[in-house]
Write a protein that binds this DNA or RNA. Structure first.
Lengths: 227, 227
DNA sequence: TCCGCCTTTTTACTGTCTTTTAAATATATT
DNA sequence: AATATATTTAAAAGACAGTAAAAAGGCGGA
C-alpha cells in the first residue's frame, strides 16, 4: 500500500466513522479512530498517522483549538469535515493549519481524491517493487534488470521471459505455458524459440552459463527460476 | 510581500478576472492574466507564477489537458475554479494534478484562505526544480536546459520530451506513454514523431549523438534517460 | 493582411538490432 | 547404447530505429 501509516479519523458521529471506515479501507488505507478531541490528540501523538480527518464539531473541544494543538508538532495533512459551512469557519480552519475543508454531507469520491492530493504533497515517491535474486535484480515497473548494479541489456522478449520466470520463482513453468505467455497462444509448439532465448538469457545473467544457477532446466517439462 | 512571483489567472470571463484582480491585489499579490488556454500555457512558462488559478471551462481547450500539460513541468499549486460541480469533474481535476477545486460562484475569503494554504505548502516542500545529469542540467521552472552551463535552445515540444524523460530517470518509458504525455492521447501511434524528436534532442544534448549516453533506446519498447 | 521565420509533420531512405530458422553439438533419460 | 531432449552458434529474414530534407503549419512583425 501507498503508506503503511494509518489515517486518523476524529469524529463523534458513529455513522460518519462507519462510512469512512468502509470507504477508506476499501481503498487500501489503514485507519485508526477517535471519538473525542482528547482521544484524537493522544492517538495523533502515539500512532503517527499519515493524515488526519477531523470533525470540527466535537462535543468536548473546540475544533480550532485542536488544529492549533496538532500543528504545534504535526506536519502531515489535516482535512476538516464539518457541518458548518460559513466562510468564517472555513477561513479560520485553513488559516490555522488545516489543508482542506469539506462540508457535510460530503461526497466520498471527492474526499478520496482530496486525500490523494494531500498525501501526494506530503510524501516522496514510493519505491518500486524490485525482485532480487543474488546479484540479479529485476525492476518490473521500470522494465530494467541489473547484475551487480550494472544494467543488463535485454531485448523486450528477453525481458518478458526473465520477468515471467522471476515472478514465478521456484515454480516449474512448462514450455507451453511460457510460450503462450511470452509469444502468444499461436506459438505453443515453438519450443526451439525458447531454447534459443534461454541460452541468450543465461549468457547475460548467469556467472557460468553452462552451469546455470538461476535459470534451471527441467528436462522434458520446462524451466524453473531459482531454488 | 508573501511572494514576488505573480499569481496567474487563466479565465475567459472578464467579470471573474476583474473580481480576482481586485481581491488578489488588495491582498498584496501580483497578478498576471490569460484568457485562453494557449495564452495561459505561454504565460505559465514565461512568467514563473507562484500559483495558477485555472478555469476548467475555457473555450479553446480542455481544462484537464491544460492541467496535464502544466504538470509536465510546473510544480507549484494549481487551484481550479469551475462552474462544473459534478463529483467526476472534481476527482479528475484533482487526480490529474490540481491542488484544490472551488465551484463558481465562490466566496472570495475562502479562495484567499485556500490560496494561503497552497502557498504555505509549496514553500514547505520545495521540489528540487533543477535536474542534473553530468554536464546537462534541466531547470523545470524556467523551462531551460544547459549543457556545460551553455543554454541549449529547445523548442517547447523538445523541452516537454526532455523534461518527461529526465523526471523519469532510469525508467523505461514506452513509445505510447511518451506520445500520450507529450503530444496527447490522439497521437499514440505516431512513433515516427518520437524518432525525429529524439534525434533532434540527441544532437543538442549528447556528446556523440550516434552513441547516446543519456537518451537511450530500448528497442521495441521505448526510451530511457540516464543509467 | 501578407511575408518570412521557426517548429512540427511527413516522406523516403539507410542502417541497426531482434527474432527466426537451421544445423551441428552436447546432455539427459530409459 | 540408443533415443529423446537441450544447448550453442551463426546466418537469414524481418522488424525497428535513425537520418536528412522537404512540405505543411503556425506565429509574430511589418
Amino acid at each position: 500500500m501507498i503508506n503503511s501509516d494509518p489515517i486518523l479519523i476524529i469524529d463523534d458521529e458513529v455513522q460518519i466513522r462507519r462510512l469512512l471506515e468502509i470507504t477508506l479501507s476499501a481503498n487500501g488505507y489503514k485507519i485508526s479512530e477517535a471519538t473525542t478531541g482528547k482521544e484524537g490528540l493522544t492517538l495523533a501523538a502515539t500512532g503517527h498517522p499519515a493524515l488526519i480527518i477531523l470533525d470540527l464539531g466535537l462535543p468536548d473541544a473546540d475544533g480550532l483549538e485542536i488544529i492549533k494543538k496538532l500543528r504545534e508538532w504535526y506536519q502531515k495533512p489535516i482535512i476538516i469535515l464539518s457541518v458548518r459551512n460559513s466562510e468564517d469557519d472555513i477561513i479560520k480552519a485553513l488559516d490555522n493549519g488545516a489543508n482542506d475543508y469539506l462540508t457535510k454531507p460530503f461526497r466520498t469520491g471527492e474526499l478520496l481524491a482530496r486525500i490523494r492530493v494531500a498525501i501526494r504533497q506530503s510524501q516522496v515517491a514510493p519505491d518500486e517493487p524490485i525482485l532480487e535474486f543474488g546479484s540479479i535484480s529485476i525492476d518490473l515497473t521500470n522494465h530494467t534488470a541489473r547484475r551487480k548494479n550494472e544494467l543488463i541489456k535485454l531485448t523486450s522478449t528477453e525481458f518478458a521471459l526473465l520477468a515471467l520466470l522471476a515472478k514465478n520463482e521456484g515454480r516449474v513453468l512448462t514450455h507451453q505455458y511460457i510460450l503462450k505467455e511470452v509469444w502468444g497462444m499461436g506459438y505453443t509448439e515453438q519450443t526451439q524459440y525458447l531454447r534459443v532465448f534461454v541460452a541468450q538469457l543465461r549468457k547475460k545473467i548467469e556467472d557460468n552459463p553452462a552451469r546455470p544457477k538461476l535459470l534451471n532446466t527441467e528436462s522434458g517439462i520446462g524451466y524453473r527460476f531459482g531454488y
